[in-house]
Design a protein around this nucleic acid. Sequence first.
DNA 1: CCCTGTGAAATTATTCACAGCA
DNA 2: TGCTGTGAATAATTTCACAGGG
Lengths: 224, 224
Amino acid sequence: MPTELPAGADPRDIPDATVSRLPEYLHALHTLAETGIATVSSEGLAVAAGVNSAKLRKDLSHLGSYGIRGVGYDIAVLTTQISDVLGLRQHRAVALVGVGHLGQALAGYGGFANRGFGIAALFDIAEDRVGTVLNGLPVRHLDELAEVVSAEGISIAVITTPPLAAQRVADSLVRAGVTSILNFAPCVLDVPGNVDVRKVDLAVELQILSFHEHRKSRNGKVAT
Amino acid sequence: MPTELPAGADPRDIPDATVSRLPEYLHALHTLAETGIATVSSEGLAVAAGVNSAKLRKDLSHLGSYGIRGVGYDIAVLTTQISDVLGLRQHRAVALVGVGHLGQALAGYGGFANRGFGIAALFDIAEDRVGTVLNGLPVRHLDELAEVVSAEGISIAVITTPPLAAQRVADSLVRAGVTSILNFAPCVLDVPGNVDVRKVDLAVELQILSFHEHRKSRNGKVAT
DNA sequence: CCCTGTGAAATTATTCACAGCA
DNA sequence: TGCTGTGAATAATTTCACAGGG
């Protein structure tokens, strides 16, 4: 048995849809924990996370059984369990490339540190940005990437560059050993199969909302 | 009621998964148009958009048939068609509430204007922000929301406030007549059923990547 | 022929509904 | 009795594979 598998849950078997909701559950658990209560029912947690309770129970069942029938879930236990599955028990260092407006906003975003992440290094190529200090972190030149990634043990990076630079940056990141990328540049990245990419495109989100607006405005009946 | 549709595509019948990809196709089409070519095959467009061609064809089939067999799609025609379905032929005014770091970054994000959106108004409640000017737009007090939303014909809003303020802001937006919300605050919003909410949570995206990192690091094989 | 459009099959995700334990 | 965990039913999405038009 090569890799130790703690109990019940093989990460390989957790469906993507479930994985994408686990962070929401974790966040809801943190919020509930602050109110001082010790346990929560699937219905209570589901409401706090904005899903229905059947889906929540099914999701949690993929992690193994950690609830108490007739009572609910122990908030501390479930928090630990989900953090464990998500790999958040170990602090993860993140590199951010592209210190424009969005990059600066993310670099200063308090929400990361509270949730298991720390921006460990900032990179850019603009002469007037390299060397400045942001939130206590120096902005380094992209040329130092490989060195810093290795020194800081970074495996996750965020790209907030203009789209034309993004592919080149992604190539550098991959060469430096980064294996997960969060891409805010509106373009498709071409990376090796072992590298995970998630994309956030702000304009796309608005366009999806636009579709729904449009649909609503055609609301009345459309006669044949 | 008898909501029958005249021709081509009933927006009601376009699956969510397809809607969420249409903006990507549109973006890819714009990029291709800049190269000067007039038509593109499903395979070519699929690569540009980062999906496989069967999925792309199935998606486009929901809009009606706009391809030419043996040739591909006319880029101009398909661009118009998708823009139409997404409701982007009419310019949509967007309000942004919460002019912190992220809000400022979004207010200055050029990507919106190019893609059919304009930030039409900025709101905040902090004394030292209200009255300042950002990118040529004045930051108004949240109290003016209803008035401005009505005057500017705004139906879409972006929330970039701290989570504790977000629900209150959402309530105000709904009262003012906004029916689509893009929420960057890490919290669940409670809104009426006719209001669409999309949520973008930056920490959640990182946590999902963390899961995949964690999985990779347990790499060795676990025998069945 | 080439490439679209699409039924049919396969896969994935959600919801139901209830057995069984605390 | 209340609530979890889960098979079974349903729904949504993706993929296959090929008929048929240009």
